[in-house]
Design a protein around this nucleic acid. Sequence first.
DNA 1: TATCATATTAGATATAATCTAAATTATTGA
DNA 2: TCAATAATTTAGATTATATCTAATATGATA
Lengths: 144, 144
Amino acid sequence: MDAEAIRRSLEGSGLRCTPQRYAVMAFLMEQNRHSTAAEIFEAVNRVDPRSSRATTYNNLRDLVKAGLVRDVAVEGRAARFEAKGMRHHHFICDRCGKVEDIEWYDVPRPASGSIGKRVLRECELIFRGLCTKCAPARASRKVS
Amino acid sequence: MDAEAIRRSLEGSGLRCTPQRYAVMAFLMEQNRHSTAAEIFEAVNRVDPRSSRATTYNNLRDLVKAGLVRDVAVEGRAARFEAKGMRHHHFICDRCGKVEDIEWYDVPRPASGSIGKRVLRECELIFRGLCTKCAPARASRKVS
DNA sequence: TATCATATTAGATATAATCTAAATTATTGA
DNA sequence: TCAATAATTTAGATTATATCTAATATGATA
């Protein structure tokens, strides 16, 4: 992962490249996953410098506001965050809550009557079901 | 709204038709909206008998589990609940968090390679942008 | 370097949701 | 009917998630 690229994307969005903010962004870009704030907080604190919980939340909020990170809400669970990269849809596991990417493909727009006077910014597909890990364990009740 | 129909749908799902549970279900069916647990709690308590917060949450969870109600997660806000009726997609307002229905239309499935060994249960479109109320107020920062 | 805006921090607070254990209500079956 | 059992409700405590506060530190710039 190119540290300069991360610095440039932060500064290009008007955000200072502080060690704590860099650590959050680098973690999200390296892990190509969807992590909760708690996971990110723990991860960035495995390396120096230490970052407080408030700073982790502040930085996540700033990164979302700057459009570099996306906040994915999951029913009954903590929000998950991902670096915005290639466009994609989402798969959410009913059983363990894991969020995974599904290759992007265009979706037909709704009839303009359905949209009315709303201002449409984006559209995303959410697929639900059981992830690869949970599918075989279907019968079981507990989440591993 | 037909009280007997509500009773039948509860009992058909193996749930007793208690006054508190009925009140939650009736509220969700009458209001064709997407309400937070707090709103539902307040609404069912405007009529007798009074229901506790825990009961409201318990009943919402049971209704979701029974497939009569849907839990819609919204980034940065409390979950919203809706009675499952006609199939539809969702529009979520970036500014005020309001969830609205968008007329259903079929969505092309992803390439089977993108799904892999996952078990697909359902697929929904999420549209984002500004709702009719918020669109004209775009420049303003505060939520009414 | 002095100034000033931005960022970080620990800990308090707020909000959303669940848990606990006791009491209540409904259902079943003798 | 009535005892036994199961489901439901309850107030209040607790947990989980997220934000706020006010003091301090840091970085940018003139």
